[in-house]
Measured scan of single mutants.
Amino acid sequence: HNGKLCKLKGIAPLQLGKCNITGWLLGNPECDSLLPARSWSYIVETPNSENGACYPGDLIDYEELREQLSSVSSLERFEIFPKESSWPNHTFNGVTVSCSHRGKSSFYRNLLWLTKKGDSYPKLTNSYVNNKGKEVLVLWGVHHPSSSDEQQSLYSNGNAYVSVASSNYNRRFTPEIAARPKVRDQHGRMNYYWTLLEPGDTIIFEATGNLIAPWYAFALSRGFESGIITSNASMHECNTKCQTPQGAINSNLPFQNIHPVTIGECPKYVRSTKLRMVTGLRNIPSIQYRGLFGAIAGFIEGGWTGMIDGWYGYHHQNEQGSGYAADQKSTQNAINGITNKVNSVIEKMNTQFTAVGKEFNNLEKRMENLNKKVDDGFLDIWTYNAELLVLLENERTLDFHDLNVKNLYEKVKSQLKNNAKEIGNGCFEFYHKCDNECMESVRNGTYDYPKYSEESKLNREKIDGVKLESMGVYQILAIYSTVASSLVLLVSLGAISFWMCSNGSLQCRICI
């Protein structure tokens, strides 16, 4: 991952900044910058967002509201009850120091605090018919004063009620008058409520006091790749198909172990950190130390980045220098085999997901714990399936590479015959000098055995068991695999060879 928040398929997220979902939807004055928000790819909250409900109280069923919003990608904020005409018999300019803005008392931008007009609070009834052709999110509140005197001074009615009804919602609220500790300079409380109004449905408000009335509502448009994440990451000019709280993932790998919460087309989250597919040879310690064997393909974004291909070729060293050249036929066979294998694994496992966190309130801790156990169970199954699949494929890959290298080895052996000696570690020792032209003939299969047989015969008789390297004779190393990324691999195959001279070296080696 890149540690950044990015656009998702070209669409920017909605960053709530210092506000949370509650503050944004109710219209906390400190969240005025969010009022123009219309569309987004996903919503970003920060872990310690401080601006929620400015007048103390709870947004009821907040967790369910977050779940609903996680599939919303755009909205239209509109005046559901026009301020100047909807409440002619009531005062609608209630403000509070708890919702101060720029040093002055204020109130929510989407709600109206209705109080008595003169000395009376006549029963009010108002309704709205949803003609938007889509779901409408309606929010309101109920004020709970701290004393009967406060109730009387604001609403005149000691036994007030609030009723809200639609086809799918029907509740009646009565204020709970009680002494409470002071929070944000208030002994009173406000509880906030919401409902989704279906197209064509009607919502009716009736009250004799204590109503925090809707002013603006939201017509919602769903987008199934949307979601809500909690993150401290910063926004950058970048684009992605998959976003996590820790950063964007741009990967076609089937798995990731970065974060379980994802938005967009994302690899499946697994616990494993070692889900690797081999593309090189079986481990040979001396070669492995030099980083030549054991190439791997990573299938977990965050564990290993991208696929690494092994390729086969020849390396030689003689009086004229040293050089490398790919054996294109065996390399292409290996590439085709690995590509098919990788595609097979991805096809089997690479279903892209959006995974969002589930919200539970403080009273639902047991449910949250149960949900976590269920999620953990599914996660263990996914991890096991992934590891088992790759384990089985790896064994076949190792066998496949062994065969490829063996074929190259036999190709060289059949040409050199007794003009060189096998020394048991995949290397041959020449009994004759071999210049670049000679080396090329070994690589392309045109090695002239009779041409060098007499010199080889004489050297075999002279050496008589002495280690060949100390006599200045020449080696050919018969097994060799270097490691390159897919891009470098293609470039390498396009070149005939490249040279690395070893000044004054008397050794001649050709490596497979």
Rank of each mutant, 00 (worst) to 15 (best):
N232K: 10
N232S: 11
A233W: 00
M235S: 10
E237D: 14
N239D: 15
T240M: 12
T244R: 02
Q246A: 09
F255A: 09
I258W: 00
P260H: 15
I263G: 07
G264I: 06
C266D: 10
P267S: 01
R271W: 04
S272R: 02
V278A: 15
T279P: 03
R282T: 07
I284D: 10
P285N: 09
S286H: 06
R290A: 04
R290K: 15
G291P: 01
G294N: 12
A295Q: 07
E301Q: 07
G303L: 03
T305K: 00
D309I: 05
G310R: 15
G313Q: 11
H315M: 14
Q320S: 11
G321W: 07
S322R: 05
G323I: 08
Y324A: 00
Y324W: 11
A326P: 04
S330E: 08
T331C: 08
T331H: 14
Q332A: 15
Q332I: 03
N336A: 14
N336R: 13
I338Y: 04
V342D: 00
N343Y: 01
V345R: 00
I346G: 02
N350I: 05
T351V: 09
F353Y: 15
T354F: 09
V356M: 08
K358I: 11
E359L: 11
N371A: 07
K373S: 04
V374L: 10
D376P: 07
G377M: 13
D380M: 09
D380E: 14
N385W: 13
L388G: 01
L389W: 03
E393T: 10
E393M: 09
T397C: 09
V405F: 03
K406H: 11
K406M: 12
S414W: 10
Q415H: 08
N418I: 03
N419D: 08
E422V: 13
N425H: 14
N436V: 13
E437C: 07
Y447E: 05
Y447P: 12
D448V: 10
Y452W: 15
Y452Q: 14
E454K: 07
E454N: 08
S456Q: 02
S456E: 00
K457T: 12
V466G: 02
V466L: 15
E469L: 15
M471N: 13
I479N: 06
S481V: 03
A484S: 08
V491L: 01
I496N: 07
S497Q: 15
W499H: 04
C501R: 02
N503E: 00
L506S: 00
C508G: 02
C508N: 05
R509K: 13
R509D: 08
